[in-house]
Write a protein that binds this DNA or RNA. Sequence first.
DNA 1: CGCGTTTGACCGGCGC
DNA 2: GCGCCGGTCAAACGCG
Length: 192
Amino acid sequence: MDSNNHHPQNPNPNLTCTYHNTEFFDTLPDFELSDYLMLEDGTEGDLSSQNVTSSDNVTGGSVESAGATSTNSNIKCRTGVKRNKPDQADFRVAFRTKSELEIMDDGFKWRKYGKKMVKNTPYPRNYYKCSSGGCNVKKRVERDREDSSYVITTYDGVHNHESPCVVYYNHTPLMVPHGWTLQPSSSQSSPS
DNA sequence: CGCGTTTGACCGGCGC
DNA sequence: GCGCCGGTCAAACGCG
């Protein structure tokens, strides 16, 4: 990887991301993130306008994601819970990020295990696994076919370990092992 | 030499 | 039942 240059400080004073557990998502019983990310005809085009829970707050907060050296990355966070098979993680979160780079280093170490061309999308989808032993968190990275300047990163599962390099947003660890809740700051950093 | 990436093959789920 | 498609595996390869 070429993007292990982590940012020790808060890379984005305009964005507060606080992660708790999935209780947050229980308030969104009908919100299936995967549905939103499913690039279906006539729906994916509304991605930006349908960013119901967080986009209004998050969008506009330019973020230089850890490792992503893009100087103008506008991140749009889509969060939700996906009920999977019992033996699978029941947690899924996705970010739609405006970036030229597909590599979104979030502080964890990922190993690429697959690449696939998906239907109706001119761009390949890349599959990554957390390379930490015992951690079976996966993520998919693909370009938004509607706007190739956006990268959609989907995380499956929850890390069972601390990040090798915890990224802090407003004094709050970006990655917490037991689930995330997104609390974007709409205007400025407002430490509690 | 070890680790990560690449890539074609394989498998399972789902829709018709 | 069959075919399509998304997801995963694993061997080969490349790089540090």
